[in-house]
């Protein structure tokens, strides 16, 4: 059957298309397998894509997407013209940088440490315990953080007081905001983040370690030459994907941590868009800010992916 199609194609046209047809036929199962997924992306991701255009319109629900008036770059002018824009951008960038510098490596480190555990039972128990916080909602996590850090009988301040220190008003201070936010993320998501690396590590052939030990390599050298390379491509892919969401700081947590005393360093795009756009039903403006964030993400992803390829990695596309 495939042969006959290929033959027919060859008769009807030149040799290049026939080669194509041959490949098509040869890979028909692969195409068939891609098809449902492709259809999914087209229907649920690309069909709604027209929504992006409302960033250039004044979206009125009653008029609908097409009939709402076109306003060009008005919403972008409002965003970039806002005297707070520079502050917002700076706050978002710093918080994102904190996240990548301090949080991103942590799951890798913990996964490597877990991988070194010799007792299977300890390993499983620790794994299970550290991933629990992922399941607590931010409302609860922030509530617990408040309980620890408040000046009104919070454990941290009680300890400080006992050792003769001054009470520190952690929750209403510009200096502590980023530290606390990042620490909360580290606490909540590190264990969860290790899972993917542990899965990648499960692919390492134990015989490699055996051979390395024969060669007299110590634990650190084994880690460096065998374990780390095994998860390198996973790390790089996760990093590229993270960069795509570089300006996403996580709305709920920041929103709950914000107050009058730390807004100068704490207000980020996500919280700004919420209070200015979403909660007041200003869809067009919210979409415009989202589009700006996406474009920044796109640039970062393209740059990072090309960089990765230069260094001989697969990258994400």
């Amino acid at each position: 059957m495939p042969k006959s199609i290929a033959a027919q194609a060859a008769v009807s046209s030149a040799s290049r298309p026939s080669a194509w047809a041959g490949r098509l036929a040869r890979n028909r199962w692969l195409y068939l397998m891609v098809l449902p997924g492709l259809l999914y992306f087209l229907v649920f991701k690309y069909w709604p894509m027209y929504g992006i255009f409302i960033a250039f319109k004044d979206f009125q629900p009653f008029l609908g997407f097409w009939d709402s008036p076109f306003v060009g770059l008005k919403h972008f002018e409002r965003l970039f013209g806002d005297p707070n824009f520079v502050v917002l951008f700076r706050n978002t960038l710093i918080l994102a940088a904190y996240n990548i510098l301090f949080f991103f490596p942590l799951p890798i480190i913990v996964a490597l440490m877990l991988n070194e555990l010799r007792q299977e039972l300890t390993k499983r128990v620790v794994q299970t315990l550290v991933y629990i916080p992922h399941f607590m909602s931010w409302v609860v996590v922030v509530g617990i953080a408040y309980m620890f850090l408040t000046t009104e009988g919070g454990i941290m301040n009680e300890l400080l007081a006992r050792f003769g220190g001054e009470k520190i008003n952690f929750l209403v201070s510009n200096e502590w905001f980023r530290t606390i936010v990042t620490a909360e993320v580290m606490w909540k998501e590190t264990g969860w983040g290790t899972i993917i690396f542990l899965a990648a590590l499960s692919g390492v052939d134990p015989q490699l370690y055996e051979a390395a030990r024969m060669d007299g390599a110590n634990r650190l050298r084994q880690l460096w030459h065998i374990t780390l390379p095994a998860i390198r491509s996973t790390i790089i892919i996760l990093l590229i994907l993270r960069l795509g969401h570089f300006l996403d700081t996580g709305f709920e947590q920041i929103f709950l941590m914000l107050n009058a005393m730390n807004r100068e360093v704490g207000e980020v795009f996500d919280t700004y868009v919420y209070s200015v756009g979403i909660s007041q039903g200003q869809y067009s403006f919210s979409t415009a800010v989202g589009l700006f964030k996406s474009i920044v993400g796109l640039i970062l992803v393209v740059v990072a992916n090309n960089l990765a390829k230069k260094f001989g990695e697969e990258g994400i596309y």
Binding site: P48, M49, Y50, I54, G244, Y283, S294, L298
Partner: peptide, 10 residues
Amino acid sequence: TMLFSGGMIP
């Protein structure tokens, strides 16, 4: 699609 989405309403 990871970077751009049509949004909640569409």
